[in-house]
Design a protein around this nucleic acid. Structure first.
Lengths: 100, 100
DNA sequence: CCGTATTATAGCACTAAGTGCAATAGACGA
DNA sequence: TCGTCTATTGCACTTAGTGCTATAATACGG
């Protein structure tokens, strides 16, 4: 089994030499396949309205301030990387996974 | 059923007058029952090591930079509210929920 | 019909999170 | 021994995150 992993790593390193992939560990390879989430201001608002929650409640779930959610939805500030990831989790799994 | 909800809201409003709770809608009440996650620098590091991933891979999952993860673990910076929530999700659900 | 609570917006000012880059160093395998 | 991965440290910069206040529209109960 560890032989298979080593061979897989070699394959990835070969691909890296050609320039197909940039990172090298197997785990990196997995992660790289996952696109970074992006959300426009409207997308965030639609996501929240789809969940039927107010800005205040949404903020509580996110563990963020109301002010922050407002600025996201009005395009004044953009969510940080981790916040974007959290939004993508909510979109796919719902609000329950955050608290349960 | 909607009578029960109304009564629950009345109860919450009563409690609010006394100062036990500050918010008022039923949804707010639910969310308020969920404690805000807190993580020390060591706790974050232990969480990551428990998952057997490097800082780089962990950062990729979080959709954050390596520099950010390092500063969390070295106590130079603290994760934002949304980042804390994301960490709690990872701790309870694993890394897979972030990407699958 | 009036008062109250909820919801969301807008503006302001401040703190601190997030990022990038470069240099350094230990571990490990080819 | 060379190259790579790993992590640390320090620096400088950008901007996300937060709090507060005032304002306005809506909805609901007395």
């Amino acid at each position: 089994m560890s032989r298979m992993i080593k061979e897989a790593l070699e394959t990835i390193r070969d691909l890296e030499e050609i320039g197909v992939v940039t990172k090298q560990t197997l785990r990196d390879f997995e992660v790289q396949a996952v696109p970074a989430p992006t959300y426009t201001a409207d997308a965030i608002r639609h996501l929240r309205e789809q969940l039927h929650v107010s800005q205040a409640v949404f903020a509580a779930y996110l563990n963020a301030s109301v002010s922050t959610v407002q600025k996201w939805e009005n395009g004044e500030k953009k969510p940080s990387g981790a916040a974007l990831r959290l939004l993508s989790v909510i979109e796919r799994k719902g609000l329950e996974v955050l608290v349960a």
